[in-house]
Design a protein around this nucleic acid. Structure first.
Lengths: 344, 344
DNA sequence: CTGAAAGCGCTAACAA
DNA sequence: TTGTTAGCGCTTTCAG
């Protein structure tokens, strides 16, 4: 185990006391000057600031935080699900990370990123428990509703990207999965498709709501969902391929696929191509997320767009509410159907 | 500006002194017990530990760090280039982030992620200067060689993902771009292609070396590179399309494209498709990076794989060397040609 | 084996 | 306007 301290051998790090000595004042004066306090005379203030700048002195934030009992870091944790293996490599999650980085930077906060094994989700609170961050944004609700509730009950300031569930103690920000699913369903129905297969694990709250949305759309068209068309695909790399094969094995008739994620839709389309099934001719396919590559795909993928930009901002805003002791209501962000060639 | 302190109104955070009082010992004893010191009797140690666990007490790392002058956080900074606009949304960079997260977690380090405007790159050192991190991993060398040299000269422990350059004071870890370029060129030549266009800004060190590799391959085949085949595409979202259009405008003959990134290759292929140009029939296309979606693309993309997994580990390993005062030689990681359908 | 006391680098009363 | 002093939450001599 390597030590983690730089060798202060040669040039010890500059401290406030050094600046004070060099400026011929007390550390309090330096502290005040650097903080822009009005208690300090214009003259000394600029003198101290100049000195500090020319010496490239920087305040030690750790010490400052300790003294002021403050902190401007938020934790972003990405649960790593041992089953599905979806982790920090999923394009959608990664884009959420980027969006969060932007939103936090904008607000002057630092971002401490960690991965945690989803099966021990309380570990997600570690950065908070140890005082490193003022709160946690968790990307990926999975099926850990209960563990998340426990965290919230422990008063860990946490906001989760995911679906709003009944009996929920924690704050969620998420896309409107129900509406998104319905949008997708309605679009497919409008194209004359009636046998719509759904790929995804409906035990995951978000996926479940997307499926429910699809069912709503079907209901409005007077169609009863056929359980044979529901394939419990997971987020494994080739989930789409497996789902298509399962569908074939079942020998069920279908003319459209609504996949729980873009990645799944893409692998499904590739599998169809290998099988000589024309997309969208024989089967219309629609994905979910609108990751960047969806538009580059062939055929360009019709999909439901998640509001990633807004998501980052909203997650941060809600977390800040929580850390200030105000309640943060869960939020449902609007989604949008992006029609491209894979479904028309 | 929101305040960033949680309301300690109700339940003040537990401290060591609380545990000490409850256990009827001194804080020193608690400190030692929790640290697993052998100076403490088996009995008190377990008693204290039990108590701490049952009360869910956690050591305040900030205070601990201050006192011990240590730190187990490393900064990962992603420069945001105002020109090319490539930032935290590029799939390759994002996957590097993931890989770093893994490598750091493995070593028990936390990861502080920040974005900085590449035009003020010294800001990259801020987390180090303020004592928040023990060193910096910078993803994206761009053309900021000089600024990076300055950071290194200031003794900021920093390792950069990118190309090794002459007169370089900082440590780089990167793929072997020269070999990668040559691999790609040789492959294309082996397919009988002789007029190979290159898409990318060769002023960027990594891209430049890839082009140089291509030229080496051409030279070995006795072919002189044609400047008309070099298109200075950038990383803008549809760089590939623009490059193809430029090529057409030039009216130059070509039978292959080597793109500086997979994204560029993909948009190029899409453009070719729209123009009715068969890939790989009329034009073979090869990308660079091997991002996850390359294999899902149609046609599946031939590309040069960057060793992302190893990269994360290597970057972290080198940084730790630096922080311990040891020199860290720059590293060139082997790359690999992944042949898929877009080129054969 | 345990406790008292000093101090990490900084800020904030309180005095001057 | 400035300095003195105490102390943020922890670890570690140094004594017992």
């Amino acid at each position: 185990m390597p030590k983690s301290t730089p060798p202060e051998a040669d040039s010890r790090r500059l401290q406030m006391a050094d600046i004070a000595r060099l400026a011929g004042v007390s550390t309090s004066t330096v502290s005040r000057a650097l903080a822009g306090s009005k208690l300090i005379s214009e003259e000394t203030r600029t003198r101290v600031m100049e000195l500090a700048r020319s010496l490239k002195y920087n305040i030690n934030i750790g010490a400052q935080n300790l003294r002021m009992k403050q902190n401007r870091t938020v934790g972003v944790v990405v649960p790593y699900d041992p089953d599905t293996r979806q982790h920090l490599s999923d394009p959608f999650f990664l884009s959420m990370l980027g969006s969060l980085a932007d939103a936090l930077t904008e607000q002057g906060f630092d971002m401490l990123v960690s991965r945690v094994d989803a099966s021990e989700l309380d570990a997600a609170a570690a950065p908070f428990d140890t005082g490193r961050v003022i709160g946690i944004v968790l990307i990926g609700q999975w099926r850990h509703h209960d563990q998340l509730n426990q965290l919230a009950a422990r008063h860990v300031p946490i906001v989760v990207w995911g679906a709003q569930l009944p009996q929920q103690l924690y704050c969620t920000v998420g896309g409107d999965n129900l509406a998104g699913g319905e949008l997708a369903g309605a679009h497919l129905l409008a194209q004359g498709r009636k046998r719509i297969a759904f790929f995804g694990d409906i035990n995951l709250p978000e996926i479940g709501q997307r499926y429910e949305g699809l069912c709503n759309a079907l209901a409005k068209a007077g169609i009863t969902p056929d359980p044979a068309l529901l394939v419990p695909a997971s987020f494994v790399p080739d989930g789409g391929r497996l789902a298509v094969e399962e569908l074939q094995r079942r020998g069920v008739v279908f003319d459209a696929v609504f996949a729980g994620s873009d990645l799944m839709a893409m692998t499904a389309i590739n599998t169809f191509r290998q099988l000589g099934v024309d997309v969208p001719g024989r089967v219309a396919v629609i994905g979910y997320d609108d990751i960047e590559l969806s538009s580059y795909f062939h055929p360009p993928l019709t999909t439901v767009q998640q509001p990633v930009r807004e998501a980052g901002r909203a997650l941060v805003a809600s977390l800040l509410e929580l850390t200030e002791g105000r309640p943060a209501p869960s939020l449902k962000l609007p989604t949008q159907l992006i029609v491209r060639s894979s479904s028309v």
